[in-house]
Amino acid sequence: MSLLDFARGTALQWSLYIFVVGIIWRILGAALVMRRKDMSQARISGAERVKEGAMTILTRSVPPETFEKRIRFSHITGYLWHIGYFVVVLFFIPHILFIKSFLGFEWPGLPNPMILVIGAITLATLVALLVRRMTHPVLKLISTADDYISWLVAALPLITGYMVVARVGLHYETLLGLHVLSFCLLLIWFPFGKLMHVFFIFPSRYNVGAIFARRGVRV
């Protein structure tokens, strides 16, 4: 079996299983710890709190100006690399076909040169964020192994992706195999590191919105 066959066959299957088991495990394991009911008299009805919680999922994406002006760099770079990453993942045609092989449907993609430019911006932003993490006093202090592992695991598919396109050193199919394996690594690490924020961001934002809404504060 070639590396590529292994990567997109056995490795992909098992990492998908680990991913699925891991995310459900982690979400349920955290969401089902002991619960205490808040018996205080809420300012607004339960239905309105649900609405406010749901709204916070959206509104938290754009903080008020007073916060925004102090976090502009983190915010712009954060958006830049997330959007860039999703564009590369979702609109590069071989990726669409990869996802189609799972979901069964497809959508229009973007021309390769555009993907290459966006990918380069994304990777450059990621590198800038890594440098910032290693130098900014606050980030240096609060960073854990998880942050660096997750950075690497998220950056590797981009790096190997570029290696595939640029044919760096090895055969195309070997590089493609490594690229797929780097995605498998992402799937495997996903449920165990901070990448899980992709899922937890929703209940967390919802909860903070609903908790403040109970007190009549829209956040």
Binding site: Q13, L97, F98, K100, S101, F102
Partner: peptide, 9 residues
């Protein structure tokens, strides 16, 4: 089958 298709199980 497209070359980039995965074998997802």
């Amino acid at each position: 089958e497209p070359l980039s298709a995965g074998r997802w199980g």
